[in-house]
Computed example of a mutant assay.
Amino acid sequence: MAQLVDWELAAATAAKLGPTGPKVTPGEAASAVADLRRLADEATGHVAAFTGLTEAMTPGPVRVVDRRDWAAANVAGLQAVVNPLADRLTKGKEVPGLLDSVGSKVTGVQAGTVLGYLSGKVLGQYEVFSAEPGQLLLVAPNIVGVERKLGADPRDFRLWVCLHEVTHRVQFTAVPWLRSHFLAEVQAFVDASETNSQQFVTRAREALGTIADAIRDPKSTVSMIDVVQTPESKAVLDRLTALMTLVEGHAEVVMDGVGPQVIPSVGAIRESFNRRRAAGGSVESVIRRLLGIDAKLRQYAEGRHFVQTVVDRVGMPAFNTIWTSPETLPTIAELAAPEAWISRVAH
């Protein structure tokens, strides 16, 4: 049966289009991999001590990957979500013009183009789609490349990155319902976005095409969300945005809270990294907006402010009531007004 996306072609396209470098010797590469594994283990203890969260589920081993492997892992994760969705849309039957082989190859190239671009940007990721409880990925060439560009101490920068990414692993393993809740919200967004199978697939392909076109020729002014969102999906998107803002802000607060205790050069790293986040030429800016990266950068700042404000007011144990159930998560309005969340949940 034909697929919505030719996943093999997507992985091959991502591998072909992903950037190369930095130049490292085999010894330097092996050392970076060993460092990242060791520092991820070290970061786990720091995160647990700072947050008071205990992993209720046993996490898998950290995976230190290159860009090709990062893209392949995300292809596998996307397959786990998209293939059942396509099956549900078509009830397992062929739909002429919907899941045809030509269309799946076009979508495969588009998805691969997006993943190829992202594979050169992502430092780490807690990937939750492919299996429970998820897997921690650290992209070694990107970490080494950025630490060199920033002139950062390698040990300090690598531990700093690990603190952020390990915090995400702790979130999803210490809060057993969080992954299933996140996946349910993603499904709810899809359900709210779809009016019928043909319209949904058309919207999905338009969204991928919009991003892929911008990467090749960044003159488009259309956002991916503009393409796929419907009025019915806005409420779900608000909940998803609030959740992602919380988990990103929480990780930022952990980085800033633990960093000064264990990373001597953390102040210089944070300052240099923030400048790098804000930088980018016109091409980069368009692509970041289309992919939602600009929104993610705002999530870091907004989420950090919310988490830090709550922790300062009520302390970390009371803040941790946020992980009790989906009902205790902040709304998107409460993220801008931490006092409202405190009054509702942590009073």
Rank of each mutant, 00 (worst) to 15 (best):
S130Y: 01
T241Q: 15
E132M: 11
V228T: 12
L163E: 02
R158D: 03
P326W: 07
A48M: 12
Y126M: 13
T90N: 03
R277N: 11
M255R: 13
A73C: 10
L17V: 10
P218V: 10
A188W: 05
A80H: 15
Q187G: 13
K93H: 12
E165M: 05
V128T: 15
P84E: 01
V166S: 05
N320C: 13
E94A: 14
A235W: 10
V82Y: 07
L291A: 06
S180K: 15
N320F: 02
R239F: 10
P330K: 14
R158H: 09
S220T: 15
V122D: 03
S282Y: 04
K91C: 06
S104T: 08
L329M: 13
P22G: 06
D238F: 01
L123F: 03
V227P: 08
E55A: 15
M224Y: 07
V345C: 02
P22D: 11
A152D: 09
E339F: 00
T20N: 10
D312C: 07
T230F: 06
A214N: 13
A251H: 04
H181S: 07
L53I: 07
I293Y: 08
F273G: 03
M244W: 10
A235H: 08
D100C: 06
I342G: 00
Q229L: 04
D41K: 08
V310M: 08
N142F: 02
Y126R: 15
A336V: 05
R179T: 04
A80M: 06
K234C: 00
D153Y: 08
L183R: 04
V253K: 04
T195L: 05
I143A: 07
F50C: 06
A188M: 10
N196V: 06
